[in-house]
Design a protein around this nucleic acid. Structure first.
Lengths: 209, 209
DNA sequence: GTCTATATCTGGATAGAC
DNA sequence: GTCTATCCAGATATAGAC
């Protein structure tokens, strides 16, 4: 009765929420939680400030929703690491998936990085439960490959830290990458070169080259 | 005439500046530029707020001084990479030096990471000149080793990105490391294990194992 | 050279008209 | 359900006493 008639009831609501979340991801990535202002997010979403509060209540709540979405998307590629897979192919696919995420959603990576950098004040519990459980399960897969001498004896958990760091650095610290390479923007070729580098270095490091 | 008589003239000034810079590094690392307040820094340095403005003028100026100090300390270990050195030993020493920095000065690493993460608004020019020049020079050393077949054909600049990422992740994202490993604090043994992992993975990745 | 008290500004949040 | 106008907290920076 109170909702607009034209589109199905929840439609505009969902669309507005998505618009705000996308804008928030961008602004939080660029400015961090404290540097981001509701005004800037509203401007990026092309909506009045009050709408943000209407849909998400407060700035911390909005931030939390952005973050938990990112964490979810971040864990998906891990699924590919299955015990009966070929270590070389599975690890290469995982690294490529992470590199692709860094290239396609750098802002998501940066919001996550910023949260971790400051001690994960809002994501802390999820990291200590969901992420930890998932990683320990997948670390066992790698331990299995090592035990079966299908790859070099690498510490599985630390291998994840290295892969995350090596791939996400292209999103999180791309200013640094661009500065050193002398680019104003990374091209598709740059990303290919980076991907080839990371894949071959890590695979060789795991005795899979 | 106006300065206090007892200690040599510039002594207390230098001491106070150092105290403030150390406190600022800690607070900026924990809260980021915007999250940090002059009040919090003053409290950490155990000095009144107004003193900070007396010594450094404004918050941005204080931040800039912290940052340029960190960048300087960060570039020092690169000196060890000399053309006539043994690639294996030189790279291992470099990685160990970076791992030691992550362990001993995590806050410095975090301040730097935060600055890069947000596009290096104040350090931008220094990164594009000083860092770039230094890295390109050292990349040529590695190119030389590759050309002489003293190591596997690795892209030198990307190798630096990977080494920085893999080592600094233990400072910048230590919450994540601690969460996955189930530690409330990383022990000296944890750091040794991490160092051994990174050294052996990268060296093997460079065909030096 | 040091510190207390205060002016000024910015930004999060909401009341209330439409 | 949407938006304008406004309130209020918190932070930077400085004036001025010591």
């Amino acid at each position: 009765m109170t909702a607009p008639a034209a589109p199905a009831k929840g439609q505009i609501r969902a669309a507005n929420r998505a618009r705000i979340l996308a804008a928030a991801e961008q602004v939080f990535a660029r400015a961090g939680f404290n540097g981001a202002t509701m005004g800037a997010i509203a401007a990026a979403a092309d909506l009045p400030k009050a709408n943000l509060h209407y849909y998400f209540g407060s700035k911390p709540e909005l931030y939390q929703e952005v973050l938990s979405g990112v964490l979810h998307d971040w864990l998906v590629p891990l699924d590919g690491l299955q015990p009966d897979a070929d270590p070389r192919q599975a690890l290469e696919a995982y690294i490529r998936a992470k590199m692709a995420l860094s290239a396609s959603r750098p802002d998501a990576s940066r919001v996550f990085a910023n949260e971790l950098l400051h001690g994960a004040p809002v994501l802390g519990d999820l990291v200590r439960t969901e992420l930890r459980t998932m990683v320990r399960r997948k670390a066992q897969v790698i331990d299995g490959w090592v035990a079966a001498a299908r790859m070099a004896p690498v510490d599985a958990e630390h291998l994840f830290f290295t892969i995350w760091a090596a791939t996400q650095t292209y999103a999180d610290f791309d200013v640094q990458v661009r500065a050193v390479l002398g680019r104003s923007k990374l091209t598709a070729r740059d990303h290919e070169r980076a991907t080839t580098h990371v894949v071959s270095l890590i695979l060789r490091g795991c005795g899979l080259a």
